[in-house]
């Protein structure tokens, strides 16, 4: 992971409360086109009223900030 992406990951992590490793893992899986179905289970976030937020906006942020322009041709 290059420095630019690492910075984006840190920013995302502080914004969402998500673990940095999870964000970079999600980004890696998205980039792997052989992985067709990625499910992010948010059950605990809802049940435990966790401060962690995960929704499609965050997924789109991950795609935008980490993937686009960094690794895709």
């Amino acid at each position: 992971m290059n420095a630019k992406i690492e910075k984006q990951v840190k920013e995302m992590a502080s914004k969402t409360g998500l673990d940095e490793n999870i964000i970079s893992d999600i980004a890696d899986e998205i980039l792997d086109s052989s992985i067709k179905t990625i499910v992010i289970e948010n059950l605990n976030c809802i049940l435990e009223n966790s401060p962690t937020i995960i929704d499609t906006t965050i997924v789109c942020d991950i795609i935008d900030k980490i993937e686009i322009g960094e690794k895709l041709p």
């Binding site: 998500l18 999870i22 893992d25 999600i26 899986e29 992985i35 067709k36 179905t37 990625i38 499910v39 992010i40 289970e41 948010n42 059950l43 605990n44 976030c45 809802i46 966790s50 962690t52 995960i54 929704d55 499609t56 997924v59």
Partner: peptide, 18 residues
């Protein structure tokens, strides 16, 4: 897919549990 449905987890190639 962001979801709480176990059926969607079952068919996933990769699952992240948060």
């Amino acid at each position: 897919i962001v979801t709480m449905l176990p059926e969607l987890e079952d068919i996933a190639d990769k699952v992240f549990k948060l």
